[in-house]
């Protein structure tokens, strides 16, 4: 794969998108939740629109990350992909444990939302401590 952008340029392109998206997310999250609570929205359609609007920037950031992985230098790409894959593996492992605990009636409802922060937490830790598992790269 040829490298279209250098490390710095790729990071700049990512930050230019991710920064505003994070701000939009924060505003939507706080604003949307406040709106939902105080206006006492009982129409499912409106609630759904609000929920989807808040999700949109999160998903957009994830897609921006994917683009960043493509554009950055090869070593950073491998490190980032590995951290992302590890976070995915840990999150899905948690999903299976919680899933079977639910199926066997040990736990009741679990807010699905929590898997988001779990994923980002593991991803963040994995990028910091890049060499947790495996030797090369």
């Amino acid at each position: 794969m040829s490298q279209r952008y250098g490390f710095k340029e790729a990071r700049k392109r990512y930050n230019r998108i991710a920064g505003p998206l994070m701000a939009v997310y924060a505003v939507l999250c706080l604003g949307g939740s406040a709106l939902w609570a105080f206006l006492d929205v009982d129409v499912k359609f409106t609630s759904a629109i609000l929920a989807l609007a808040i999700c949109a920037p999160v998903i957009a950031v994830l897609i921006a990350k994917l683009r960043y992985f493509e554009e950055t230098d090869e070593y950073t790409r491998l490190r980032q992909l590995r951290a992302f894959a590890l976070a995915g593996a840990v999150t899905v492992s948690a999903v299976f444990i919680v899933g079977f605990l639910q199926l066997f009636d040990v736990v009741g409802q679990v807010p699905v939302f929590l898997f988001g922060p779990l994923f980002f937490l593991v991803y963040g830790l994995a990028t910091c401590t890049g060499r947790w598992f495996g030797k090369t790269v």
Partner: peptide
Amino acid sequence: AVVIGFLQLFEV
């Protein structure tokens, strides 16, 4: 997960 999570939070 994020989509379903928020739909749950907003009781959809």
